[in-house]
């Protein structure tokens, strides 16, 4: 029984990274007052460009680790540019954020699939990045498997959580982000450039979503197909609500969702008499149930979320 539990928990960290990065990125967007439903599309583009670089370098064979690093960097840059593009549409032109987000989602998924067919062809795999067993620590029973036997990006992603918390709650820029998402008019009157702050948050959010996509294609699945993201961008958006726009709670949500995924897989594999259709739904039902019970507590929600800011108009 302990072995089964160890196996389930040891998968939670590596399998939750893509959701974690994307939802932390979305958290920065929403904290600044911008609701980006296009996360899925940005992840798809990140997954594509992230995979393309090591694939082009090695033709699917082994390549220097630096090409993987370059893949992640390119995904972050592309994600930031898509965040910038989304900012032009929603901040400068003040388009409805929900519709623009759906447009970005369709654009990202469609473009990534089309470019993939043009530059790569059919479903292809890459060697990706290996797991690293941290000396000594990885040998600790139970804890070694659960915490110290994962790939480098998984460690970095989890180390980024306290950094994200510090940026959001302890830096002047984080204060600006929270101010423009809560009361942009007051922030504006205090001399904060609302549009610029929102642009910056969108670029950071886009970069993290791009990295999340690249994690899927380089570190987890180690392949690309145009269905690779399969709704994970939308789950990331839901996790932001689940985690009440707080990095630590979002991390808890990502881990809980991933644990539910591994748990339902375990239920199926153990041959327990339980309809697999219900087992597959379990993580999603869990998110809905938790959201239902916690949605009353909206005190941390950015009050200007989804509202375009126009300093020339009284609201």
């Amino acid at each position: 029984m302990l072995a089964i539990l160890t196996n389930m928990l040891s998968m939670c960290i590596p399998f939750s990274v893509a959701l974690l990065l994307a939802s932390i990125g979305e958290m920065f967007n929403q904290r600044a007052g911008v609701f980006n439903l296009g996360c899925e599309g940005v992840m798809a583009m990140g997954a594509f460009i992230g995979m393309l670089i090591p694939f082009a370098a090695g033709g699917g064979g082994a390549v220097s680790e630096w090409y993987n690093v370059l893949g992640f960097a390119a995904a972050a840059v592309l994600g930031a540019l898509l965040g910038l593009f989304f900012g032009v549409v929603t901040i400068t032109f003040r388009a409805p954020q929900g519709i623009a987000g759906i447009g970005l989602q369709m654009f990202g998924v469609g473009t990534a699939g089309t470019l993939f067919r043009h530059f790569v062809g059919g479903t292809q795999s890459i060697p990706g990045i290996p797991d690293i067993e941290i000396p000594l620590l990885s040998r600790i029973p139970f804890l070694g498997d659960v915490f110290f036997s994962h790939n480098a990006v998984a460690y970095l992603a989890y180390l980024f959580i306290p950094v994200a918390w510090y940026i959001l709650f302890k830096t002047p820029w984080g204060l600006k982000v929270r101010a423009v998402g809560t009361n942009p008019r007051a922030a504006d009157s205090m001399g904060i450039n609302v549009s610029r702050t929102r642009y910056e948050a969108l670029m950071l959010g886009g970069a993290l979503a791009g990295l999340a996509g690249a994690y899927l294609s380089i570190a987890q699945a180690k392949m690309f197909s145009d269905t690779l993201i399969s709704g994970r961008g939308f789950i990331a958006v839901a996790l932001v609500y689940f985690g009440h726009w707080h990095p630590l709670q979002i991390m808890g949500g990502a881990l809980l969702f991933t644990f539910a995924q591994t748990f339902q897989t375990q239920i199926q594999s153990m041959g327990i008499s339980f309809p697999y259709e219900l087992a597959v739904m379990l993580p999603y039902v869990l998110v809905i149930v938790v959201l239902s019970f916690t949605s009353r507590n909206q005190t941390t929600a950015p009050t200007s979320l989804g509202k375009p800011f126009n300093r020339e108009m009284r609201t």
């Binding site: 479903t123 987890q220 699945a221 197909s225 995924q261 594999s269």
Partner: peptide, 16 residues
């Protein structure tokens, strides 16, 4: 050990 992903094209879930 038998498990279903619930999708014909979710490669990530299949790998998980």
């Amino acid at each position: 050990l038998v498990a279903h992903t619930g999708s014909f094209s979710d490669y990530v879930k299949s790998s998980e």
